[in-house]
Amino acid sequence: MIVELPNTTTSKITKRIVKMREQGGVVALGRVLTLVVITKRGREEEAIEAANLASREHPCRIIVLAAGSPEDKTCLDAEIRVGGDAGASEVIVLRGSGELAVESESVLSALLLPDAPIVAWWHTDAPASPSKSAVGRIAHRRITDSANSADPRDALEHIAQTYADGDTDLAWTRLTNWRVQLAAALDQYDGSDPITGLQVEGASDSPSTLLLAAWLHRALNVPITVTEDPSGTGIRRVVMERHNGNVELTRPGSLEATLLQPGQPEQKISLPRRSLQDCLAEELRRLDPDLVFGEVITLGLPKLLAEEKVVKA
Rank of each mutant, 00 (worst) to 15 (best):
K12L: 15
Q277M: 03
L287S: 07
S11A: 13
I2Q: 11
D165H: 09
V222K: 11
A128T: 14
Q23I: 06
L305W: 03
T9D: 15
E266A: 04
L249I: 10
V64K: 04
L220F: 02
E228D: 13
T8M: 05
R43P: 00
T124S: 13
P252W: 05
A219H: 08
L156W: 04
Q199Y: 01
H123V: 14
L94F: 07
L156E: 04
V239K: 08
K12P: 01
A88I: 07
V26K: 08
T168A: 04
Q277R: 14
I17R: 13
A171R: 05
P302W: 01
E283N: 14
Q181G: 00
S106P: 01
S275K: 13
Q181F: 00
S208L: 03
E71D: 08
A50H: 10
L271N: 03
S231H: 05
L287K: 06
G83Y: 08
E283Q: 14
P70V: 14
L220M: 11
R237K: 15
S55I: 14
S11C: 01
R16T: 15
I62Q: 07
S254L: 06
A78E: 07
I118A: 09
L211I: 12
G42V: 05
S97E: 15
H158F: 02
I63Q: 03
L212R: 06
A185T: 02
A54N: 07
R236L: 09
D154M: 11
L65S: 06
L29H: 02
L305E: 03
A47K: 05
R43H: 14
W122Y: 09
K303Y: 00
V36Y: 03
E201T: 15
M20W: 03
D278F: 06
R41L: 15
H158T: 14
V180C: 04
D115K: 14
E57C: 01
I118Y: 07
R251C: 10
R137W: 01
L5K: 07
D85S: 12
A171I: 11
T10K: 02
Q264T: 11
I235H: 04
V292A: 10
P207Y: 06
G30M: 02
P127G: 07
E266P: 00
L94K: 04
P252H: 08
S231Y: 08
T227C: 11
A54K: 02
R41N: 12
L76W: 06
R21W: 00
G300Q: 01
Q264S: 12
Q188H: 12
K303T: 12
S149Y: 04
P117E: 09
D167L: 03
E201Q: 11
A66C: 12
L276S: 11
V37A: 01
C279H: 00
E44S: 12
R218Y: 09
G202M: 02
T162F: 11
M1V: 13
E22Q: 06
T176F: 08
R141C: 07
A101W: 12
C75W: 01
R61H: 10
T14H: 05
E228V: 01
V311W: 00
W172M: 07
S254N: 13
L112P: 09
G234I: 13
L216G: 02
E103G: 05
V27F: 07
D278E: 15
M1D: 10
L220P: 03
T10R: 08
L186P: 00
L76V: 03
R286P: 00
L65I: 01
N177K: 10
D167C: 10
G300P: 05
D288V: 12
F293V: 06
A313F: 00
N221H: 11
D229L: 14
S89D: 09
